[in-house]
Write a protein that binds this DNA or RNA. Structure first.
Lengths: 208, 208
DNA sequence: AGAGCCATAGGCCGTGCGACCCATATGCAC
DNA sequence: GTGCATATGGGTCGCACGGCCTATGGCTCT
């Protein structure tokens, strides 16, 4: 029996989903929540095997809740509008699967079982996308355009060298040049500051 | 035959070491460098299997050079004064082994062979240290003292939420409180800004 | 009843940072 | 040659950030 908790602010969908999933022989809905904070307090007392979480919710969003799980629980993120950015964010917040709200129920059930088994659920759309991404080895659009100097700078960031002056000293250039390189990095990676740059640098494996 | 390059600013030690290692049947010293930038330019033309690098060097330090390797090469870091912080930094810069300059030659040779074989060389001191660290599961002194709220904040940072306003919105608190939490985190982890905090957060596994 | 920690909130100050400019030199492509 | 990208250096401006301080309410432990 797979114990699940569902969080969605659309009561109708929430209850319908709970009913439908409860009807399945191997799935038991042990709780539901209407927003992220409800979900979090619910998790203090119950221990589901899998979470079904809506992205868009009042108070604490689904992704916000995922980041604040007391301990990691496989989560499947559900959403209305599914663009790549959403998917990316969900993935980074720790979601193990992604589904559109228009996904047929059997597919969702399959995703739940896969998540329970510790597998990462991948739907067809995502699969092709991931394959595409890995074909040009791993690098996202912006990251591919990074120059060698920019990568060196990101390496330093990933190693904890963060101040302009330290970076300038480490790379033997003026602090002005450091700021120019940083600005270029921000634009290419679509980020705004060095904290995000450090995160990206590590995600791109530049800390190794 | 294991091809190695040695970088050390103490010429005597450098040459002595090169001679001694060359005398070994399975090791060939294909180049030496007196500082980090020499090392880097040397690596543009030659392809050693293993690097021996001194931490303290003029111009580009050993660790700085390691971070800027065109492609990853197993490196053994050598140093005079060997404290835990040095070791930690070296490890993060990508060093595969660490040795004191007082290490007997056969041990260094063993480390080179291990590095060449793709193994991670661990000397006795380090082994006990690592075991100690893993006994109290992984957390460094400061990290153990982090409160739940501080960890939530670090999670957000690791997820790319960096601005004070965004963090405040994500955690449903005032931006003043965010800054207080951040200041406490900085002190506990001995860092100075959110870029370093993001790096630490990921290192502590808070992105999962 | 006190001591201590945590989470919350606020004030003040100096400066580091990011946004937006421009300039120069080099090297590569066509 | 004329471009274009890269690496370097510079300037200005306004705001966000980090450092340092006080304060209050809730909670636990003694």
């Amino acid at each position: 029996m797979i114990k699940i908790v569902i969080a969605d602010d659309h009561r109708l969908l929430l209850e319908g989903l709970a009913d439908a999933l409860s009807a399945l022989p191997d799935i038991e809905v042990i709780g539901t929540a209407g927003d992220g904070s409800e979900l979090l307090s619910l998790l203090e007392t119950s221990e589901p095997d899998v979470l079904i979480v809506d992205v868009e919710m009042p108070k604490v969003t689904g992704l916000g809740a995922l980041r604040r799980l007391p301990k990691p629980i496989p989560a499947i993120v559900v959403t209305m509008h599914f663009d790549d950015e959403q998917r990316e964010k969900a993935s980074r917040a720790g979601a193990i699967g992604f589904m559109s709200k228009s996904t047929p129920l059997p597919d969702l059930a399959a995703a739940i079982r896969a998540a329970f088994a510790g597998e990462r659920f991948v739907d067809a759309d995502e699969l092709t996308e991931v394959l595409d991404r890995h074909r040009s080895p791993l690098l996202d659009e912006g990251a591919a355009a990074l120059t060698t100097r920019e990568i060196e700078l990101l390496r330093c960031l990933a190693a904890g060298v963060s101040s302009t002056e330290d970076l300038a000293h480490e790379l033997f250039i003026s602090h002005k040049t450091v700021k120019n390189h940083l600005a270029n990095i921000y634009e290419k990676l679509a980020i705004t500051d060095r904290a995000q740059a450090a995160v990206e640098a590590i995600r791109l494996g530049l800390n190794r």
